[in-house]
């Protein structure tokens, strides 16, 4: 039985097919990995660095962070609040003006996502004095937000253990994050 299989595998066509299959698998996996790491195409090339440079606070546009779970993505009315008074027009701002005119919301693509079996709330993190850049990277050096590498459970736990050892029981407890 075993010898039969070995003989079968020695046939050139079988080898070629196998090789192609393996290549396809590896290639597919690599493409998939690339897709997950690639910057998503945002509807507007929003420049975080410029806004931060001008002194806009993160919470101004993402006010959900101190209120609850999700930080929230700004609606066009939030953007337009300032931009209708700012004269300088760019192609990106034209897009914004178009959204406002059409009355549709900007289809932002969220980049910092948690799997759905994880419970995450911004509020306790902000309350504990964790800065946005601790997890989201230094946005003053980015235009559109970039996903941060390695946001996995080990990374969560590292912080949870180091930053508040006195609350470790609670902070490394499964029930704290898993739902």
């Amino acid at each position: 039985m075993g010898a039969k299989i070995v003989n079968f595998l020695k046939q050139p066509m079988v080898r070629a097919v196998l090789a192609i299959a393996v290549l396809a698998l590896v290639g597919g996996a690599a493409w998939g990995a690339y897709q997950t790491q690639r910057l998503p195409q945002q509807p507007i090339e929003f420049r975080h660095n410029l806004h931060i440079g001008l002194g806009v606070q993160c919470l101004y546009c993402h006010p959900g962070a101190w209120q609850g779970q999700s930080a929230g993505l700004p609606t066009q009315s939030k953007c337009w609040g300032c931009h209708q008074q700012i004269d300088r027009q760019t192609p990106e701002l034209d897009k914004l003006a178009q959204y406002v005119e059409d009355g549709v919301s900007i289809p932002w693509v969220p980049v910092a996502l948690m799997p759905d079996f994880v419970y995450f709330s911004h509020r306790p993190h902000i309350a504990a004095g964790v800065n946005c850049e601790t997890c989201h990277g230094d946005l003053s050096k980015m235009t559109v937000a970039e996903p941060q590498k390695g946001m996995d459970m080990g990374w969560c736990l590292k912080c949870h253990k180091e930053l508040a050892p006195e609350k470790e029981t609670k902070l490394i407890d499964c029930a704290t994050c898993h739902q």
Partner: peptide
């Protein structure tokens, strides 16, 4: 969804 003009009380996740 989606809110074009998000009312002040509809923070995401609330």
């Amino acid at each position: 969804e989606p809110y074009t003009k998000m009312p002040e009380y509809t923070y995401n996740g609330k």
